[in-house]
Design a protein around this nucleic acid. Sequence first.
DNA 1: CGTCCACAGGAATGACGGGCGG
DNA 2: CCGCCCGTCATTCCTGTGGACG
Length: 407
Amino acid sequence: MFDRFVGEAHIFEDREVLRHDYLPERLPHREEQIRRIGEIVAPVLKGARCSNVFIYGKTGTGKTAVTKHVLTHLEIKSKEFNAPVKFCYINCRMVGSEYRVFTGLCQSIGVAVPFTGLSVGEVFERFRTGLDSSKSIFIAVLDEVDALIKSRGDTLLYELTRINETLDKSKASLVGISNDLRLKEFLDPRVFSSLSEEEIVFRPYDASELRNILFERAKIAFSKGVLSDSALNLCAALAAAEHGDARRALDLLRVAGEVAERKGAAVVNEEHVREAEKHIEHNRVVEALKNLTLHSKLVVLSVYHLKKADIHQANTGEIYEVYAEICDELGVTPLTQRRLSTLVNELDSMGLLNARVISMGRYGRTKKIRLEMARSLIKDVFISDNRLGRLIDYDPKCLSKNVRNRG
DNA sequence: CGTCCACAGGAATGACGGGCGG
DNA sequence: CCGCCCGTCATTCCTGTGGACG
């Protein structure tokens, strides 16, 4: 069983290098940003507080990598200079709540905190006193703050930006990283201005920059002569067309390599990249779909049925009608329309549905909702679910009974 | 140019399961 | 074990609104 795998001409030398959480030695095309952030945090080495920084840029533009890169080097330097510098990197989206952000901050300065049970204020207070007594200069990196701000508001940031006023023996600085360039619109102006004493924007990479990034990593990741130029170029081009997203480019390249490996090919070519593209998207959708809650699944199913009945752009009311009927059929009490509306929004931001608000003038204002993936895919996912499988072939009465009068 | 549809989406509130410290 | 607090999901009530129609 393994002989074949081991015996095959191997494609990868070290595939870890292509994972996007891998931190390479060099970050091509980000020298400018590295220099600027370096200059901003440098005062820390002389015992001064550094400016707060706000970093913007879309996904895969290297914000996280650059920040981590600079901080790693700063850490080395601080040991050299014997400067009492402490760091904390927190990804707000992963961590999820305000409470847990503070918990993370506490842990980084060695203050133990129960992961639930205390009030947020209490945890903050413990962090503050802990930090003050540690007599250090503290840099907190809050990655993907936009996720937190949009769901919980800016109280967390407000507290943090003001923390220096109550610190005697320590100093704190903030590095905020946001994927959303419009973040300032969500922030209290006072918070925003103190948070962005310095502002850095990460432009998306263009195709040739992506090509260089891929090239650097491919040298280490792939065996010699295995990767064709055209495959590499295609990865770069596809990712550039999307957002200039390096993460995307790396994923494409890695999966293309895996495809080639599985096929026993000697060289990774364009065809493998094309296949990788499909593969990634397919996986993404299937995974997302599988992990939805029951009611979200039923919402998707409702949109599916509407599309099957030739209604490609359903509105909220129609979806609710179908959804309620399916719930009934399943013996589940339906959620309210208000709730369904937010579920639809969630599905929209996951890229499973496409929803946009439109006005039909005299005939009201609603959302037009479209399915974002192939119907066959939904069928595949649902059919393997023993509880919901039968609903795929169920015909909602509200769709068949009266001939629909839509314009 | 006002009306009025069919919702959008914010705010307040509550139920619930889980975990804390005492 | 209790009382408290947490985050999450959901409901209820609500005000807001783009633009075709009359």
